[in-house]
């Protein structure tokens, strides 16, 4: 089926195939070539929670491939009147050919996939999974390092609620990455994820200290400590601002090391990093477009030409 709910829905071979396709689609993503592979198709953009990048990049991806987009925002819709997700999805099943869903409740994407016929892409469910983000992260890493095999990856910040790191760590372990998880004690990666990573043979280290791992890293993946996921303000204040990556911290870093961030950032990633050769987060945000194009085509069973000519 064409659903993408967690990274378990893709084999390593399928991941690499999608990433190859995303690379072929780069000129289309940049708007240099118009390739209407998805003409006549409609994407339902279902955002029950705020999003800038995910929603916009899906919309751009669909439109650059000649498709149409329906946007649902929960404000003002029948969702605000207490409609169940099941009922909302029955409607979407009739209006769209494929849907991406972001929802505050964990499990909402799998639930939606069970409720309808059309393919469902998980655009983030609570603190659960965010596999399309993972795919664009993998694309970014692979473009920088040429391969996904055996990299040293640091993940820093809110690893408890930060769903992007949950999906990404799963995927990287499958490619033999060595992962260093850096977080305050209260924001550690959930136990079931850490034990899953280890049971899949993952080389995983947990620490609350960032600086000593920087020089050996191939990727530093920074995340924001998300205020909105804290039950109370005091808990947030205690850990907000514990990690701040600046240009100075990178003086001993490997030449090819890249700094990533799913954005938006607050203080954890200083603007001085932006002008270094390591900064890759704005590129990463753009990479959402070709990657999501490739994923839309995959779910809709549309073949992507190996070579897209300008």
């Amino acid at each position: 089926m064409g659903d993408l709910i967690t990274m378990d829905d893709l084999t390593n071979e399928e991941i690499l195939e999608v990433l190859d396709n995303a690379r072929s689609l780069l000129p289309v993503a940049k708007g240099e070539v118009y390739l209407p592979l998805l003409q006549g198709k409609v994407l339902g953009n279902l955002f029950f929670e705020n999003s800038t990048r995910t929603r916009m990049s899906f919309e751009t991806a669909m439109k650059r491939l000649g498709g149409e987009v329906l946007n649902l925002s929960s404000i003002g819709s029948s969702v605000a009147k207490g409609e169940t997700l099941y009922d909302t999805m029955q409607m979407v099943d009739g209006y769209a050919d494929i849907a991406v869903i972001r929802h505050p409740n964990q499990g909402a994407a799998q639930y939606s996939a069970d409720a309808v016929e059309i393919p469902i892409l998980n655009g983030g469910d609570g603190a659960g999974n965010h596999p399309t983000q993972t795919m664009l992260d993998l694309f970014t890493i692979r473009e920088a390092h040429g391969s996904l095999e055996g990299l040293n990856v640091m993940m820093v910040g809110d690893l408890r609620y930060g769903r992007t790191t949950h999906s990404l760590s799963h995927a990287l372990v499958r490619f033999g990455a060595k992962i260093t998880l850096v977080s305050p004690e209260s924001l550690r990666m959930p136990d079931e994820i850490v034990s899953d990573l280890k049971s899949h043979g993952g080389d995983v280290k947990e620490t609350d200290e960032m600086s000593s791992s920087i020089d050996s890293a191939d990727v530093i993946y920074m995340t924001r400590i998300q205020k909105e996921r804290f039950p109370d303000e005091d808990e947030y204040v205690k850990v907000a601002g514990v990690y701040k990556l600046t240009e100075d911290d990178l003086s001993g870093a490997k030449a090819g090391m890249i700094v990533m961030h799913p954005l938006p950032r607050v203080n954890e990633l200083h603007a001085s990093v932006d002008t270094t050769k390591h900064a890759r987060y704005f590129q990463q945000a753009f990479n959402g477009v070709p990657t999501r194009m490739a994923l839309l085509c995959r779910s809709l069973g549309v073949e992507i030409p190996k070579k897209v000519n300008k």
Binding site: T84, L85, Y86, H103, P104, N105, Q106, G107, G126, A127
Partner: peptide, 9 residues
Amino acid sequence: NCITQNSRE
């Protein structure tokens, strides 16, 4: 925070 907590689903 699971989607199934809504008893109307």
